[in-house]
Design a protein around this nucleic acid. Structure first.
Length: 185
DNA sequence: CAGCACTAATTCA
DNA sequence: TGAATTAGTGCTG
């Protein structure tokens, strides 16, 4: 393909302005909802400037709809779709990011569990490193990874740990809507 | 080699 | 009990 030019978009969700960048149809970066369009774009294009990464309003519009649905409270599964670009990561980091991506909406996993999934049972701290550099939050739901002792753990994406907690509550409150049918609370 | 989004064990109120 | 410290840990730049 000759079209390996990177493009980006920023669109409004109920939580703020969400940033999305892709290349060759592969999502290579996302930023969680920011208070303004500019803030989202700035966070999205840290390396290259907007001149090199053209804006395209309808970029991956289906995905935009799904992301929007997520913030509206619908159950959305990003575990196999869209395709993402993780090519510049080490095998270890890729394994961790891919394992993380399998965590369902509303579910949680510990740093240790992710380490085990990648065959490195004692690499919890290294897992934290990988999460800290996750380029595609939400698609790779790094906010669903918490500490073994029940603590939240860190969060370096937009909004910090407050955003992490808000997203977890958002996902958990969905479950509650359905729980009255079966196991009561 | 130093620095981490971790964790289990120890220490000290 | 429980907060605070100390080791131990594995990957990355």
């Amino acid at each position: 393909m000759a079209t390996d030019i990177m493009r980006h978009t920023v669109f409004k969700t109920p939580w703020g302005y969400f940033g999305l960048a892709c290349r060759d149809g592969l999502v290579c970066r996302t930023v969680l909802p920011a208070p303004s369009r500019d803030a989202a774009r700035e966070a999205l294009l840290t390396e290259a400037g907007p001149d090199e990464v053209p804006f395209e309003r309808g970029l991956l519009s289906i995905l935009q709809d799904r992301i929007n649905a997520y913030f509206e409270g619908e159950k959305v599964d990003f575990s196999t779709d869209p395709a993402v670009d993780l090519s510049h990561f080490s095998p270890f980091s890729r394994a961790i990011l891919m394992a993380c991506r399998q965590i369902d909406m509303g579910q949680k996993q510990t740093y240790t569990q992710l380490a085990e999934a990648a065959g490195r049972p004692h690499a919890a701290r290294a897992v934290g490193n990988v999460m800290a550099h996750n380029p595609i939050p939400l698609i790779v739901p790094c906010h669903r990874v918490v500490r073994t002792d029940g603590g939240l753990g860190g969060f370096s994406a937009i909004g910090g740990t407050a955003m992490k907690e808000r997203m977890l509550i958002h996902e958990r409150s969905r479950e509650r809507t359905f729980s009255f049918a079966g196991v009561g609370g």
